[in-house]
């Protein structure tokens, strides 16, 4: 899934690196609002969780398997700013300590999976949540649609980058078509797993789900009598 070294030319890699640095710098300020001085330990543990979640493979057909990207999942659970930080740190650790994704492609990977993946996932999630009734149960379908949109969106941005700075004269339409079709399939797996995980956390600890905050704020304490 991770873009290796040499896939995009040097100017494109440097340009996406600048975008990634800007995006992460903004996220550093935003995450302080979401997590205050708990940022370091909380984001660290959530990043570890995202890494563990990515270890789970699911079959996507033709003998290959995909794995969870987790951008939309992290955004719904801890909020978009912290999610960008967590995803970026996961990608940095994978590039530097696990040789997964090239070091010159780190900016590209952060732009695609941390910035596009998280913000498209969160944006679609917020839109769908607004359309649905204000209940904690609405968080799950909204998260499903957000996750479904986030994966092909990242694939589409990759195709765009490949059209600008790709190293081979492949027809951009072909790349876009193949990438988006393939990633819609992966996106369906991502959406199902994201929805199920969010549903299980909402059922047990809705207070931990950032995306459920508006629904929780309007929920009133309900006192039922013991006798029916």
């Amino acid at each position: 899934m991770h873009v290796p070294d040499g896939f995009l030319d040097a100017p494109t890699s440097v340009a996406t690196g600048v975008v990634a640095v800007a995006g992460v710098a903004l996220a550093l300020r935003g995450a302080r609002r979401e997590l205050d001085d708990r940022t370091a330990p909380m984001a660290g543990l959530v990043a570890t969780f995202v890494f563990a979640a990515q270890m789970i493979n699911f079959p996507v057909g033709a003998g290959t398997s995909g794995h969870l990207l987790g951008g939309a999942l992290a955004a719904v659970l801890v909020g978009p700013w912290s999610a960008v930080l967590c995803m970026s740190v996961v990608l940095i650790v994978q590039a530097l300590l696990m040789a997964d994704g090239g070091i010159t492609a780190l900016g590209t990977n952060i732009t695609l999976m941390a910035l596009v993946g998280v913000w498209v996932g969160w944006g679609v999630f917020v839109l769908v949540r607004r359309l649905l009734p204000r209940r904690t149960s609405s968080v799950v379908p909204a998260a499903v649609v957000g996750a479904l949109a986030s994966v092909p969106a990242a694939a589409a941005v990759f195709s765009l980058l490949f059209a600008i700075g790709g190293i081979a004269p492949v027809d951009p339409g072909t790349v876009l078509g193949a990438m988006v079709t393939w990633h819609v399939v992966i996106g369906i797996g991502e959406a199902v797993v994201t929805g199920l995980v969010v549903a299980s956390v909402v059922a047990t600890r809705p207070d931990l789900v950032r995306g459920a905050r508006p629904a929780l704020e309007t929920r009133e304490l309900e006192i039922r009598s013991a006798r029916r």
Binding site: L28, P41, A43, G44, L45, T48, S88, V89, I92
Partner: peptide
């Protein structure tokens, strides 16, 4: 970022 990486 270094702290978050450290915790991770």
């Amino acid at each position: 970022i270094v702290q978050i990486m450290g915790f991770m």
